[in-house]
Design a protein around this nucleic acid. Sequence first.
DNA 1: TAGCTATATAACTACCATGTTATGTAGTCG
DNA 2: CGACTACATAACATGGTAGTTATATAGCTA
Lengths: 111, 111
Amino acid sequence: MSVVEQLSNDVGVELERVLKALASERRLLILEWLKDPSAHFPPQEHGDPVEHGACNQFIVDKLGVSQPAGSRHLKVLVDAGLIIATPRQGWTYYRRDEERIQSIASRMAEI
Amino acid sequence: MSVVEQLSNDVGVELERVLKALASERRLLILEWLKDPSAHFPPQEHGDPVEHGACNQFIVDKLGVSQPAGSRHLKVLVDAGLIIATPRQGWTYYRRDEERIQSIASRMAEI
DNA sequence: TAGCTATATAACTACCATGTTATGTAGTCG
DNA sequence: CGACTACATAACATGGTAGTTATATAGCTA
């Protein structure tokens, strides 16, 4: 199947959006950090870093941008389906959607 | 090797640029068409479509944008290393850099 | 309830991407 | 040489991206 024909697939439809989401050094860093939250962020009092991911605040701090700017980067990644947000006890935790990321990586092999 | 560490590689250094180049429906179409120039463009009087690719004019026409707009899309792809330009007898032919594209696809598997 | 914290949203600014038309440049051909 | 063609570049308009500060919302906690 051609890349263009894939534009009618669930992933293919979103291909341009996903690529736009990935085309940012800061968002690539976020995805990298989320591969191993415990290694990149301070210990969390609530929420298991492995199960739920890292909280917004830690990510924003590490990015070195304002809280709204970091929050929007995370939203872009969520909207592209690359990460999953889990609101919990006033915090929001983010983790990679590995299945979806893998699916996108497969499509990229056919670009 | 992590994605971030790859930022010191030849491909990794360019990862953001490549993703920005790919994050455009029009440029994805160009790459798709160049997979098989003979199937997507009229016969060329000069230049072998398989060896040198399709000429600027055909691509621009098929995109349906102005000549400068199409020309710039092609330049973005060239600058990202995704296609190769071959000036010849007043025309410029473009073909995919399959080796480079494959290299990028491999890196994407580690995103 | 009152106040604190975490996150999201609004409003604004600056910059980049992409489109256009106009023009420059290089090669072809009569 | 002069006209034509192919492509690149310049100049400009416009929309989207990404940053900021200010403000709203929601959940703890005393």
